[in-house]
Nucleic acid binder design. Structure first.
Lengths: 294, 294
DNA sequence: CAGATCCATGCCCGAACGGTATCAATGGGG
DNA sequence: CCCCATTGATACCGTTCGGGCATGGATCTG
């Protein structure tokens, strides 16, 4: 039922040595033990990992895959243990997740200035991830874009981003300087959340190939400058709200302090007119026209 | 020595139930077994995970961290096992890594069109990662930027990107339309590879605050539009070469086919004048000036 | 103060792990 | 062509570890 990491380590040794005897020697165990462990491991997994003759040991397809996975998993587990022991020694840690395009460095810098003892990990979210990493413990605080599920989260609005429409250059509307939602009536709008595309780039591919168009936050569009897609502001579209969010349960630890400091920093920045999305309106229009011409 | 995933599962159950008896019931084992396993686990890790009184069970700092880590690790391991068994059933898989800003979707689409049976994972590289994930098995092919270590890799050049200089708006050179390397003599250039900053954003923070300037590939600069940083093309800087790379050892499986198809696709795109970096020269200059004015 | 609740401890059994001795198959050298 | 070295598999054995049951000790409740 559980993957046995000891057996995995044994398997990695055999995979690397391609030789039971030498692998056993490297592992400081006897060779027959290794043979038996590997065989048991294969039985647990339900698939052969090695093709053995008395003269050579080779990996099967499953074995190659397992070997790759092992090299991925091993350092992950080791790092996890290290962090646990750091936590035990009193070191604090905060994982800050952020949606693509949102700026977190101001808040992090302000926080570390006042809490130099707290280690910060940044956790770049995939475009379709929002609140899930906050709920399952992969992150403690998040810079997210609405909509997402508020339940059980403490949220602080930190700004608004204009939406832009992404059209293929060949689209009749592509020459316009700007659009309104009325212009988009009847257009095939690709729903970002329905289609589970593996990356936003795929979505832009769909748009470029004329499969439809999409509304995305301004800063996301800025990340995918393409000659075959035009980005046009939609003047009357409701802006996308960006939020700070953290699980309500995290009342202790560095999370509340981070929320306070980040809110303060972002509010100040907003006051100076430097908030994300508002500042770069003109930029987007330029991007759109420029791409449209090329 | 090895983390015991069974004990980890037991710990998660106790952490979630905050009650040994009910956790044991959920795990279908007897309560004393659970007590002993958790205690042994604590001893292995060398730190207390739970503070128990007879009336309540609470997590220590180390326990909270371990619980977070467990929720991260468990699905990773489960997914790994699933992929191994898929490989055993003959399903092929290819992990495609790419440096920030490089476009992979064209190549992937062309590949999946001809090999619909091969599952593709995309693996976004951190800015400081280059060839390492190819070597340790986290990825099979990569879209990388030079410089990186060629040893043991098969590489195919796929394009060139102009370098742009990143200056604070306050810098005397910020008003120029373009620079030459001579202009940068004596300027404090931040070495991306020396400083192990946790994100490129930090680097841009350093630049914005006047600590120095940097040369980055065009498309990377495009990802960090900031009002306080100016991006200027450096007309005589050597372009950054982008490459396809794969371990030489991967002679079998889908890797060679992917390299062939991707090379063909990118060559064709290059021929049409749509290659990364070259196309977007004008865009960068615009970006730079626009940021400089604001 | 008595009882209920809950985690810890002691003892037992079976399974799993590791070691030594040995077998069987394969490939190279005379 | 045969002999022997090499290598992985098997057999057997002692020890450790996981799990169950019975019970103890501590704490909260009525």
């Amino acid at each position: 039922m559980d993957l046995d990491l000891r057996k995995l380590r044994y398997f990695v040794a055999v995979a690397e040595h391609r030789h039971f005897g030498r692998a056993a020697q490297a592992l400081f165990i006897a060779q027959p033990v290794l043979s038996r462990q590997i065989r048991a491991f294969e039985q647990e997994l339900g698939c052969l990992l090695l093709t053995r003759t008395t003269r050579s040991v080779e990996l099967t397809a499953a074995g190659r895959q397992l070997y790759d996975e092992a090299r991925r998993i091993t350092p992950v587990v080791a790092a996890a243990l290290r962090r646990v022991q750091e936590a035990d020694r009193g070191e604090q840690r905060l994982v800050v997740a952020f949606s693509p395009g949102l700026h977190v460095s101001d808040a992090i810098r302000a926080f570390t200035a006042r809490h130099p003892d707290v280690a910060i990990d940044v956790f770049p979210l995939r475009w379709w991830e929002q609140d899930a990493p906050l709920r399952d413990g992969r992150a403690h605080v998040g810079f997210l874009r609405r909509p997402f599920d508020d339940a059980g989260l403490r949220t602080v609005p930190i700004g608004r981003e204009r939406k832009v429409a992404c059209l293929p250059v060949t689209h009749p509307l592509a020459g316009r300087p700007a659009l309104t939602t009325a212009d988009l009536d009847g257009e095939p709008v690709l729903d970002v959340r329905r289609l589970r595309m593996s990356s936003l780039e795929e979505k832009f591919e769909l748009i470029a190939s004329g499969q439809g168009l999409a509304l995305v936050p301004l800063s996301v569009a800025g990340w995918y400058p393409r000659p075959d897609v035009v980005y046009l502001p939609v003047t009357d579209a409701l802006p996308v709200e960006t939020c700070l969010a953290a699980p309500e349960a995290d009342g202790a630890g560095p999370v509340p302090a981070f929320l306070d400091i980040a809110t303060e920093v972002l509010r100040r920045r907003d006051g100076e007119g430097r908030q994300d999305g508002r500042q770069r309106d003109g930029a987007a229009r330029q991007d759109g026209r420029r791409s449209g011409r090329s």
